[in-house]
């Protein structure tokens, strides 16, 4: 099946239709997505700041990861699931949206960054886990991680502003009076 056919079949699935037809499901899913992503981001920042030697430096790096990464992964699965539920409701539009595409590439790069870290500084973690900061490769991975995740959050917000008519920005010079029409008939 080609990609257009795949996107169309995803969009017409029962699940996607149910979410689209509900007034409440999409807002709820989007709110839960924000909740998940703030935890993914916040917990990753704790690990990155430790690698950079900025915060929690008196705690061994391995203590922090064993404390925190399980929450990061749980929040990531939560966020990815809610993200996919939003995607299927309007798959074709999201697929062709450049902010969505950029976000997906950056997510892949963030994953690659973790993999490279594990293969470099991660291999020698027991030599430096009590040091104030990680070796150079580890610090570079931390900076890259922070830049990637902050950009991912920005991209996510821009997807919302470029894929939904209802959230399109108001025209400049808006007159608030226009927003208060006489009440509609009940």
């Amino acid at each position: 099946m080609d990609i257009a056919g795949f996107l169309a079949s995803v969009e017409s699935s029962n699940l996607a239709t149910a979410i689209r037809d509900s007034l409440y499901l999409f807002p709820l899913i989007e709110s839960l997505h924000v909740l998940g992503l703030t935890l993914v981001f916040g917990t990753i920042v704790i690990v990155d700041l430790r690698l950079l030697g900025i915060a929690s430096i008196q705690r061994p790096f391995t203590r922090i990861t064993s404390d925190i990464l399980k929450w990061t992964w749980a929040a990531f699965v939560w966020t990815a699931t809610t993200g996919m539920l939003m995607f299927i409701t309007n798959a074709n539009v999201y697929y062709h949206n450049s902010f969505f595409r950029t976000k997906m590439v950056l997510l892949a790069l963030a994953g690659l960054n973790v993999a490279i870290f594990e293969l470099t500084s991660g291999r020698t973690v027991h030599h430096w886990h009590k040091d104030a900061a990680a070796p150079r490769a580890g610090r570079a991975a931390a900076i890259l991680s922070l830049v990637l995740w902050i950009t991912i959050i920005f991209m996510g917000r821009w997807i919302g502003f470029t894929t939904s008519q209802s959230k399109a920005p108001l025209e400049p010079g808006i007159n608030a009076d226009d927003l208060f029409p006489s009440p509609p008939p009940k």
Binding site: L35, L39, P169
Partner: peptide
């Protein structure tokens, strides 16, 4: 008058700060 870029920027910074607060 600058809402096309200003509002999503402010919202993104707001979400980043929420990440720090919530965590």
């Amino acid at each position: 008058t600058h809402n096309a870029s200003v509002i999503p920027t402010i919202q993104s910074i707001h979400i980043i700060a929420i990440g720090v607060v919530l965590t």
